[in-house]
Design a protein around this nucleic acid. Structure first.
Length: 313
RNA sequence: GGUGCCAUAGCCAAGUGGUAAGGCAGAGCUCUGCAAAAGCUCCACUCCCCAGUUCAAAUCUGGGUGGCACCU
């Protein structure tokens, strides 16, 4: 049997950080973040990174492990996070994976491997260039010849996935369909009890998100983004596509209307939360904890502890 | 009080006689190396109301109602 761990997931601003710490305190655990943006150093306010007061002495891993100008990826995340989890287990403690990046969580748990390829290779750049000149339909037809299954699944507009499918094929000689089937057959790396936080009513979630963005503004989001820009972080890198940074950077470089940018951030955050919920709904084994208008951590802790007993922890 | 203009989805908005564009917002979904990303689907049986003209009306006519503008 794979080792057991706890996962705390949920849309943005649903209280994952707090619940994870509570669980860690009561069950001798350590937190491993599963957040694609808290990975980056110097991006604290806008990613709602836990402060040291919020951590309450609980070690947090997978936060501040990359610089904003670096390229990060799921593959790197899985490598690093698996080491953290295994280390926590080896020390006899309970790993609590907490975060809102569904792809990272699922990839880590499933034991998924990623097709190896040469990062120096110009292949992807070439494919992207061809995508621009020849268009998605042409590349999709090319994919159709080698991997009809994935070609049938992809929409001509889904350029990223067409490029990736072709990239995997040309660099490994294996189709992405084949690769996915092989990795799907691998045993899961961990057995997880997944706790998913959510609000019963969407309006309550929106209110929480709005308030949190206001708090970020008060905490100095504008200054944080200014500093990133001044230190030369390019606007197009992955870190700067994070919600909060993208909009604020555009405002600072444009009309300077930071209040309007904050409203935009609220909107984008609500849309993001909706996408997260879609992802989490796919996990039929997840235990959902619903907030009735406002989070009640005492109740959540109690319910979680019940689930953990059933789960055998 | 008078005159003029306007009324189309939650919002913006095209459509001037032939059977309701588009955008935003919203909902649902997909997802295997950029994922806080990217992509897909759905969303007005009806155009403020009533009457009329017409084979046919959001489009034309008359009368209401509401809004805006100007005049007194």
């Amino acid at each position: 049997m794979p080792p057991k761990i706890i996962v705390v997931s949920g849309p943005t601003a649903s209280g994952k950080t707090r619940l994870a710490v509570e669980l860690a305190l009561s069950h001798n655990g350590e937190v491993v973040s599963a957040d694609s943006m808290q990975i980056y150093r110097r991006m604290d306010i806008g990613t709602a990174k836990p402060t040291s007061e919020e951590m309450r002495g609980i070690p947090h891993h997978m936060i501040d492990v990359a610089d904003p100008e670096e390229d990060f990826s799921v593959a790197r995340y899985v490598d690093l996070a698996a080491q953290c989890v295994d280390d926590i287990l080896a020390r006899g403690k309970l790993p609590i994976l907490a975060g809102g990046t569904g792809l990272y969580i699922d990839s880590l748990l499933s034991g998924r491997t990623f097709a190896h390829f040469d990062e120096q290779s110009p292949l992807r750049g070439e494919l992207e260039a061809r995508m621009r000149t020849e268009g998605g339909q042409a590349l999709l037809e090319e994919l159709q010849k080698v991997d009809p299954d994935s070609a049938a699944r992809l929409h001509p507009n889904d350029e990223k996935r067409i490029v990736r499918a072709l990239e995997v094929y040309y660099s490994t000689g294996k189709t992405i369909t084949q690769h996915n089937a092989e990795t799907k057959a691998l045993p899961p790396r961990y057995e997880a009890l997944t706790l998913t936080l959510a609000f019963s009513r969407r309006e309550d979630m929106w209110a929480r998100i709005d308030r949190r963005v206001d708090e970020m503004m008060e905490a100095g989001l504008v200054q944080e983004v200014e500093q990133l820009l001044h230190s030369g972080v390019p606007q197009r890198c992955t870190a700067m596509q994070a919600i909060g940074y993208k909009e604020m950077a555009a405002a600072l470089l444009g009309d300077g209307d930071t209040a309007a940018a904050a409203e935009e951030i609220k909107l984008r955050s609500r849309q993001y939360a909706k996408r997260q919920l879609t992802w989490f709904r796919r996990n039929s084994a997840a235990k959902w904890l619903y907030w009735d208008s406002v989070p009640d951590f005492a109740a959540a802790l109690q319910a979680s502890t019940g689930y953990m007993k059933e789960f055998g922890i």
